[in-house]
């Protein structure tokens, strides 16, 4: 069997990687440019926790409805290389022993689709009508019957079917997945700083303490995220 030329295979691989790979966000010049940061021998980390309002502005998808969104920037340490994996990140609530790992874009997109399908639109349609009858002649007596006005008031209530909500179709799920994936933290070996969003399937509550933990190569960092005050 004749194999395909090497340059064609190379082009296909590069093209597919360029399409599928998450691009993340643009990292700042150094970790200390982030409000929450830490620098160790092996890595530097900078973190920004997005409030629901910021997440709404940053994403078309309603990711704040199901997740805490954190922008994470990672900087390779002295050896100049860093293996970036979402599994090295954990979010702990109120310093509990059990932490929450980040959810993949696919899982978050599916969650959002289910949430959108569960909600239904309720619409109320009021109607008001005023008319005038010009009158006529009584067929029995033959006398003129005067005209008059008539008024009518009505209201209708419509409940939308399931699946009619924004973000509930399969195409929407796929788009949400693409957005979350493209803006997500790129995984893999990094020799330069990388940054992107990480989605934790946790609902934010008032006065809840959230701590982001990053552990790699025996070194661990704990960063306490600012509390939600609203």
């Amino acid at each position: 069997m004749k194999s395909m030329p090497g340059w064609v295979a190379g082009f296909v691989v590069i093209a597919s990687l360029a399409v599928a790979a998450p691009k993340g966000t643009v990292p700042r010049s150094s970790a200390d440019k982030y409000a929450l940061h830490a620098v160790r021998d092996r890595f530097g980390i900078g973190v920004v926790a997005l409030s629901p309002e910021q997440a709404r502005k940053q994403f078309v998808s309603d990711v704040s409805h199901c997740c805490v969104v954190v922008e994470v920037a990672l900087y390779p340490g002295r050896d100049g290389k860093l293996d970036v994996s979402l599994n090295d990140l954990v979010l702990r609530q109120n310093n509990s022993e059990v932490g929450e790992k980040p959810a993949s874009a696919k899982v978050v997109a599916t969650k959002l689709q289910k949430k959108a399908q569960a909600t239904r639109d309720v619409s109320v349609y009021p109607s008001v009508g005023v008319g005038y009858g010009s009158g006529g002649y009584d067929p029995v007596t033959g006398t003129r019957v005067p005209g008059g006005t008539y008024k009518q008031v009505g209201v209708g209530v419509g409940i939308g079917g399931s699946g009619s909500q924004p973000g509930s179709s399969d195409k929407d799920r796929s788009t949400t997945e693409t957005e979350l994936s493209e803006k997500g933290l790129p995984e893999g070996s990094a020799s330069a700083p990388v940054s992107g969003y990480v989605y934790f399937p946790v609902m934010r509550k008032k006065n809840q303490t959230l701590t982001l933990e990053y552990a790699v190569g025996g070194e661990k960092v704990q960063l306490r995220l600012p509390q939600e005050t609203k």
Binding site: V60, T175, T178, E179
Partner: peptide, 29 residues
């Protein structure tokens, strides 16, 4: 239609504007 698109806005003598668009049903951007 829902999906991801590349938007480019161009005018003579001006820098091009590029943005990735994510379009969802019923959403306004």
């Amino acid at each position: 239609d829902p999906g991801a698109y590349d938007l480019t806005v161009a005018a003579p003598g001006r820098e091009d504007f590029h943005q990735r668009l994510y379009v969802l049903t019923g959403k306004s951007l």
